[in-house]
Amino acid sequence: MTTIQENKVAATQPASPWREFWKKFKRQKLAFASAIFIVLLFIVALIGPWIAPFDYTKADYSQILQGPNDKHWLGTDAFGRDILSRILVGTRTTLLVGLSAVLAGAIIGTILGLLSGYYGKWIDSLIMRFCDVLLAFPGILLAIGIIAILGPGMINVVVAVGIFTIPMFARIVRSNTLVYKNSLYVEATRSLGAANLYIIFRHILPASFSSIIVYFTMRLGTAILTAASLSFLGLGAQPPSPEWGAMLSAGRDYLTTAPYITYFPGLAIMLTVLAFNLLGDGLRDALDPKVKD
């Protein structure tokens, strides 16, 4: 992916595009900090189980509902499990669900958008009507509807969140495609006898990359938030799982006696979503001022 993007940037902005981007991006201090935080999150997602101070599944009935202390920095839950360890391990689930849902939605949406914009006519109307219908519903209701059909579970959450990500990408890529389709550059390539698919993937798609990346980042935050909400509602990850939304849901019953059980998983969700949103804003300002929220 990086190589394709480098090609694209080199094609449209000859004057050292990376340095230009870097110069603009560095100025966005919040976005920069968010990027560092996100890198740390991914590291934790990879090595979480090994850096967790305790076994995240192991119940310890001598240690139930302990507040934050020297041994358990973030306290323990109703089964005496270490909350810090569960949050660290749960990072992987959170990022995996968000990434796979948005990635699936982005790929399908991008393909639909390319087809729609490049071929136009009835393909375009069909795809765009389909997107209108999907967009007419708020994401979480659509996701709940899909889960009502498929049944609860993490995989189905990914499917549900992925589906409502499709129309957004389809629209953005379509409008970019419409612009680039008629550019002289593409006209010239076409006149040289290039095949449609070659033009789409070699020229039009790379030209949309900056929009896609900006939007991808922003959607990740939304996707993580929606997935956590679904788990909280009992429609996603089920209780023993250290998914953050599910942990919060389990902590609800101890709101009066042990509120910290809900503090930290919620904080983890918020910081993660916040980081993706801030990074998205920063990338937008540095890469693609056209995309509005």
Binding site: L30, G221, L225, A228, S229, F232, G245, L248, R252, L255, T256, P259, T262, Y263, P265, G266, L267, I269, M270, V273, L274, N277, L278, D281
Partner: peptide, 25 residues
């Protein structure tokens, strides 16, 4: 504007529980 990004990012169920914990409990 930072408050607004936080508002968009905060999980509503968590905010609900925090408010409930503070103002109700």
């Amino acid at each position: 504007m930072f408050g607004a990004v936080v508002g968009i990012s905060i999980p509503s169920f968590w905010l609900g529980l925090l408010l409930m914990q503070w103002f109700s409990v």
